[in-house]
Design a protein around this nucleic acid. Structure first.
Lengths: 204, 204
DNA sequence: ATAAAGTGAGTGAGCGTTCACTTTCGATAA
DNA sequence: TTATCGAAAGTGAACGCTCACTCACTTTAT
């Protein structure tokens, strides 16, 4: 009985494979990427991959679970502040915009690859649902708080608005990845911010 | 010199192939779909396909050009009305929402397939740019008119807002295709409408 | 010494594309 | 009107290639 090195080493290798797979998937798309691409990039042989994942699909599913499924918690952590509802909302919109430009262009590209694969693969779809629901729950909570504190108009539908925010963010993300030519991210962020504020303003 | 039947017949066959390809692509995705799938569905043999298209990619490119590239003109036709800027804007938002539910769920699915293929295929990407730019131009025009007539707030950025509208629509479309569970299209449409109105309202 | 980790050629299935062949049907001649 | 011809339309087996996955074997670290 002598494993090479338990737990930690296995975990590192697994992560190295996932990192390599991420690079390859966002570069060529899931279907076009080959196991050999991933193995080479991870500095391993093809066979080694199969010691860590049952098949190609499982790599994608794990990637979605770990890179997209956890977005809600990360988002919540980077966004929650003690104070003003308006400030929290601003932070959310800023984070969406910032994610595209500097923070996680990689994650954004993975989102598109995953979306297209989700049509086929039920497990990938479930991973995306998880992300969507998590983010909606969090955003809806932020809005509900704002209403409860009397800052936002009381007749706003928190869930519908949360879905809208998220769909807008994802829509921009997808268009951005395809690099639609005349997208001015800064102008759009400002415009969106003002739109949401104009709507939520509680005028007596 | 005796073609089977000129022009019209060829055109019909071509269209039949494109229709079959559309069904197959939105069902399995571009990469997974096979030429045989398309041929079978079109009631033809594999070889016949290649009399109408040079290769698989050209089928996709044609599909994008003809089903998505023309969206702007169709959109403009169904949306332009003589009168009130607010009414025109409402029509646009309604059309977006209606397209998803009843009008063109097929086109919406094609959009997602095309988006994911665009990362790879430059011609597909160009077809999508065409659609995006066309729709943005039209929407920006609608907004500019509203401003010119004094109905909308004068400091709104027409292009940025147009991009936002479109990205939101596409974002909802994509989430809808993946059938995110708790999307209430009706509620979102209303919420979005109110948001845009609140923003564009020209209060002195 | 030993069991896990890693290797990479091999396997078999699938798919885009081709091409030698058959079928179809309008045009022409009888 | 009808027989015949020829070119375009259509066929599908075959080709060449790719790729996910396997497995008998080697290496590694305890």
């Amino acid at each position: 009985m002598s494993p090479r090195v338990s737990a930690q080493h296995k975990q590192q290798r697994r992560q190295a494979i996932l990192d390599a797979a991420l690079d390859v998937f966002i570069g060529k798309g899931y279907q076009v990427a080959t196991i050999d691409d991933i193995a080479t990039r991870a500095g391993l042989s093809v066979g080694a991959i199969y010691r860590y994942f049952r098949n190609k699909s499982e790599i994608m599913v794990s990637l979605v679970a770990e890179r997209l499924g956890r977005t809600p918690e990360i988002f919540a952590r980077l966004t929650q502040s003690s104070g003003d509802p308006w400030e929290r909302l601003d932070k959310c919109i800023d984070l969406f915009a910032r994610s595209l430009r500097v923070r996680h262009p990689v994650t954004t590209r993975l989102l598109l690859v995953a979306l297209s694969e989700a049509v086929q693969d039920g497990e990938v779809r479930q991973g995306l649902h998880r992300r969507f629901q998590g983010l909606v729950d969090y955003l809806a909570g932020v809005i509900r708080d704002g209403i409860a504190q009397g800052a936002f108009r009381p007749d706003a539908d928190p869930v519908a608005l949360a879905c809208l925010l998220l769909c807008t963010a994802d829509g921009v993300a997808v268009s951005w990845v395809i690099d639609a030519p005349e997208i001015d991210l800064g102008a759009m962020r400002t415009c969106f911010r003002n739109m949401v504020r104009a709507y939520l303003m509680n005028r007596e």
